[in-house]
């Protein structure tokens, strides 16, 4: 083909003419054999496909390995479980700010009328992540960033916050102290009735 003429698009190979009456030449025998096996491809095509297929398998595997490489099996993040004193240390009907600076939590103990449970609220506004403040005079949590407001217990009622404040998993340790895990939190108020979301005191 001349290098300067545009090449015509490829046409499918011309159909092989029907074999004539057999003088049974070698070519005829070869054709007959392929008919017997009824293959879709020649040996060359098969090997080419296998080689390229192998290459792309390897390439896919390598890309997969490279992606998996970015997910280490161990991270060295700081610990998330803390002991926060005994249930007796917390007065009934109070939002305790003792560990707000250290662990970013409020420890809340309901009055007997409210149910008397003790639970831990994570001090992170559900709007964009700032740390709200407990305003005991106004009986609400108020976020300074955009004004989100949360009732006692953490339900959002004013401002841009879309969801209530999250609660952390609590349990009683062997020595009688409350142990809480700030890495394991309950978002949905439906989950707040689970036995590991609050302590009966």
């Amino acid at each position: 083909m001349s290098p300067d003429q545009p090449t015509p698009p490829a046409n499918p190979p011309a159909p092989r003419p029907a074999p004539a009456k057999p003088p049974k030449s070698i070519q005829q025998q070869q054709v007959d054999e392929t008919k017997v096996w009824n293959l879709w491809f020649t040996r060359r095509e098969f090997l080419t496909l296998a080689a390229w297929g192998g290459f792309f398998l390897w390439l896919g595997g390598t890309i997969g390995a490279a992606l998996r490489y970015f997910l280490p099996n161990v991270t060295y993040d700081p610990p998330t479980r803390f002991k926060i004193g005994r249930p007796e240390d917390y007065a009934s009907g109070e939002v305790n700010t003792r560990f707000k600076k250290k662990y970013r939590i409020w420890v809340v103990r309901d009055t007997p009328a409210q149910g008397g449970g003790l639970y831990v609220i994570y001090a992170r506004c559900t709007h964009l992540g700032c740390t709200p403040n407990w305003l005991s005079g106004q009986n609400k949590f108020k976020c300074p960033c955009h004004g989100s407001g949360f009732r006692w217990g953490g339900i959002n009622f004013e401002g841009p916050a879309p969801r209530p404040l999250e609660r952390c998993r609590v349990a009683l340790a062997d020595d009688g102290q409350i142990i809480t895990d700030v890495g394991d939190r309950f978002k949905d108020p439906k989950d707040w009735h689970r036995p590991d979301a609050y302590l009966k005191v």
């Binding site: 698009p9 490829a10 190979p13 159909p15 092989r16 054709v31 392929t34 879709w40 060359r44 095509e45």
Partner: peptide, 20 residues
């Protein structure tokens, strides 16, 4: 594309798609 000794059903069907 190599010339097959006889037309391949795959390629016949694929050719217009490939061309497009």
């Amino acid at each position: 594309m190599a010339d097959a000794p006889k037309p391949m059903k795959f390629e016949e069907r694929l050719a217009p798609v490939a061309r497009a």
